[in-house]
Design a protein around this nucleic acid. Structure first.
Ligand SMILES: [Mn+2]
Ligand SMILES: [Mn+2]
Ligand SMILES: [Zn+2]
Ligand SMILES: [Zn+2]
Lengths: 145, 145
DNA sequence: ATTTAGATGCAAATGATTTGCATATATACC
DNA sequence: GGTATATATGCAAATCATTTGCATCTAAAT
């Protein structure tokens, strides 16, 4: 089960499985959405009311750094987190914030060019922006999610 | 000449060509570097010492919005600006901050997939991260640029 | 030269994220 | 199960890039 695996991965790396961490993972594992720290905090309060936003930040950072969860940046000034931690990309709707996962990595860089510059690529980020079906028809901007 | 064209494009769109704006464009047109607002401000002071950082921000934003200049986000929390405004991408060295421009857009999204979701893509962003030749050899992290 | 919408400078506000530090608590060990 | 201690948490305050309010200035149209 996803949430068991996520929690286990904390222990595997020598981190304590606190009530707070369990609750955060519970929230992320329970949705396919891409949540800001603030959103995680709001949802996690039902499971663990005393949980502080600072702790949410500290743990989302820790888990993302450990690649237990994923972090995405849609360029709107706040990071989003998701249960998936494998390499993938998204379509982001500028109208309502909807996120669609792209099945295959659409990037292929000219290897010759990179080798010419002796540059060793370790990672990349790609996100596409536009309007989903709901937001694209004129007059409807879609309710901001 | 590049700087003349950039300045002209301000006038073309009904914006005033102020001493401050001319100086900012002068700085950007004079380099191929990708500068933060702070860096633009530091360099522009030689041409226009009273120029305020707020004004630098306001004008870089204006010009980027008008696609007179380019804006890039390397995910380190501050925007970079450059004289180029055409669609292109970069390699960003995590060791020294060096930026290498990628000649061709390496992105091709599965059109069938996008059509299935009735998503209309208006733009995308892609940046690759890693280590340049100078920073890749062990022991040398390269001087931060 | 006059006029005035648009631009600038300065100070203060934002807003997401981080940090310092005293207190609390998982987990290892007996 | 009880105890020790390295870790984690809560709260308040700090960061830091960027934005905003407002009084003053100025480019450029007349
Ligand atoms: Mn995703
Ligand atoms: Mn560039
Ligand atoms: Zn990819
Ligand atoms: Zn591209």
């Amino acid at each position: 089960m996803l949430r068991v695996r996520l929690k286990q991965s904390l222990a595997d790396r020598g981190y304590r499985l606190t009530r707070q961490r369990a609750a955060i993972l519970e929230v992320l594992a329970g949705t396919r959405e891409h949540l800001t720290a603030e959103e995680v905090h709001r949802r996690v309060r039902f499971l663990c009311p005393e949980l502080n936003l600072t702790t949410v930040y500290r743990n989302l950072n820790l888990m993302a750094r450990q690649k237990i969860i994923g972090r995405v940046d849609f360029g709107d000034g706040r990071a989003r987190f998701e249960a998936r931690s494998d390499h993938h990309h998204h379509l982001f709707c500028l109208g309502c914030g909807r996120v669609i996962e792209i099945p295959a990595c659409p990037v292929s860089i000219d290897e010759v060019f990179v080798r010419q510059h002796s540059f060793r690529i370790t990672e990349h980020q790609f996100e596409a922006y536009g309007y989903c079906a709901d937001c694209d028809r004129p007059g409807s901007e879609g309710a901001p999610v």
